[in-house]
Amino acid sequence: MTDKKAAQVLIELKDAAFAYDGRPVTPGMSFRIMAGDYVSILGENGSGKTTLLKGLLRMKEPYRGEIIFADEMKKQHIGYLPQQSGLQKDFPASVTEIVSSGRLNRHKTFAFYTGADRQAVQAVLRRLDIDNLADKSFRNLSGGQQQRVLLARALVASDGILILDEPTAGLDPMASHEFYKLIRSLNQEGETIIMVSHDVHCVMHDATHALHLDRDFYFYGPKEEYMDSVMAASFLHRTEEK
């Protein structure tokens, strides 16, 4: 990550704090996310992780402080993989239909797909090695395949930045491992990754930065600094106990 891109700030938070339902749920945070970073967001349930992601997606304004986005980070051109509600597991839609919907952010009034959209979708399916699933129904796929499809939808929507909210929740260990491997290779290809995860191992192995969120305080820094911090020590300890 020594190329020119690495020096580019994508998102900068200046004392930004978020509220949910009118109640503050995060402390004021100040940090910068650079192009090519792999940021892992950790924290207990209810510590405002998903709320922060909504802020990074510009779906929510901070109630205090500000977020500055780089000019080339066009609004809505962020790839998002939301937390799964379980409603979609048996949805009758083909893989191509689902991944194509990632291109809708490029269409304003009339949302018809163009040849360029179809090519982008095919390219992304090949990139994630799921082009053999293109015409398969989402409801007949395994959990790991379903997540891969939703990741493809995020990729096709994005201009190089992916925001993932607990993407491996509900996956078996093998499928989780595969999924993290895929994220790691995407990061090595230059994608910026921001991911909420309960899995501390992915911070230890893959992430470049850690953001640990709690109601009143937070830690943001390179993975190595985090691993030496008091917060990490107590969090990791608690996770191991579970």
Binding site: M59, K75, Q76, G102, L104, L150
Partner: peptide
């Protein structure tokens, strides 16, 4: 949720 992030 995803639709919302695409501006729909």
């Amino acid at each position: 949720t995803f639709a919302e992030s695409s501006g729909i």
